[in-house]
Design a protein around this nucleic acid. Structure first.
Length: 105
DNA sequence: CGAATGACCAAGC
DNA sequence: GGCTTGGCCATTC
């Protein structure tokens, strides 16, 4: 494997995620592409599972604009945090990516 | 090293 | 809108 991958694939993910401004959200695939690993969206999810405190993990959602967590793993907390930042979630549990999506990539 | 795992994604019905 | 299928990828066992 490459030294870069070896160093910590996760640290790259965290670096990108920390750049997401308050009130904005990004998708797993978006993060994956940002670190030069398109297709590694699943791995990004894995990284979020062990994320440090400084990482705004709650701003990461799936490509459909929905919270990918299950009620038992932290869905409620994520929804509450997003709401606190002004991100509106409709009745179907979806977020308008065109409005809240992070277009910095 | 092979097989399983998971906060994914796109396409089809 | 909701479910299924096949494909991706790093990490873990």
């Amino acid at each position: 494997m490459k030294p870069e991958t070896q160093k910590t694939f996760f640290s790259r993910v965290y670096t990108i995620v920390r750049k997401i401004p308050r009130g904005k959200v990004a998708t797993y695939g978006q993060i994956a592409r940002a670190i030069g690993a398109p297709g590694a969206a699943r791995t990004v999810g894995w990284a979020m599972r062990v994320c440090p405190e400084q990482v705004p993990w709650h701003r990461i959602i799936n490509a459909r604009g929905e919270i990918s967590l299950r009620p038992a793993t932290g869905y409620h907390e994520q929804r509450a945090r997003l709401k606190a930042e002004g991100v509106h979630i409709n009745r179907a549990g979806k977020i308008d990516l065109k409005k809240y999506g992070w277009k910095q990539i």
